[in-house]
Design a protein around this nucleic acid. Structure first.
Lengths: 118, 118
DNA sequence: ATAATTGTATTAATCTAAATAATACAGTTG
DNA sequence: CAACTGTATTATTTAGATTAATACAATTAT
């Protein structure tokens, strides 16, 4: 099974797990499902899942102990860099929107209404 | 020559031309360079450029007359749908940023500072 | 102890979308 | 008439994403 539509699976998975961790749904030092478990659950290849875990580890969101498992990093290890990356991506999105005719007020309004539903 | 980095060339080109049109650098009914001219200038295949022109026409930004050329559409033909599309994409970006830990105030701040430099 | 499970690593093969390439056609323009 | 226009078709090539088949050493559970 292969998820279509441009965005690579390992990135989709990375976004999903990032959300679980950043939102606090997973606690610090909580164990993540093994690479093989996730692969089985979503019918993916273990290598694809490992790629995601490597990404998450590079960004400080998780730490992996060989032969043991992968765990959620303490918040102070990642929150800064995670937000920095998000801010960078978001800045690009703002620039794109401006180029397509939206102004600061309109963007601010979208931010407000989108965040309100949370 | 092939532009690297995930985003397809025809989308990069589409973004670039959209900017020219939306910003007003190109005027209504102004003629766009021909498919073959653009292809030559950027060392692309004419088919790739044509794909971009098709996209732009679908979005109402340009209109093409066979055997004559492609021209910038009047503003009222596209500005609404163009902004709607931009708003849709931007909303996704907001959601992504929120999932990664940014809040409404932080996002608004980024909007302000990013738009200021323009 | 020993069998199963862990993260990690390597290498090759497969698959798909993107991009290229080579044309062709009909209408216009000079 | 010759050159140029947008448009269309089909086949090929390419590169990145994904799969696949393993293997290893360390940990855990039986």
């Amino acid at each position: 099974m292969r998820i279509r539509g441009g965005i690579p699976i390992y990135e989709q998975l990375e976004a999903r797990i990032t959300e679980l961790i950043v939102s606090g749904e997973m606690e610090t030092d909580e164990r993540l499902p093994t690479v093989r478990e996730v692969a089985k659950q979503f019918a993916l290849n273990p290598n694809t899942v490992q790629k995601t875990y490597q990404l998450l580890e590079q960004r400080g969101l998780i730490y992996s102990i060989p032969s043991k498992g992968s765990y959620v990093s303490p918040r102070e290890n990642y929150i800064e860099s995670c937000k920095a990356l998000a801010a960078k991506n978001f800045t690009e999105a703002v620039n794109d929107a401006v180029k397509r005719g939206l102004n600061a007020d309109e963007l601010t309004q979208i931010v407000r209404s989108t965040c309100k539903d949370k």
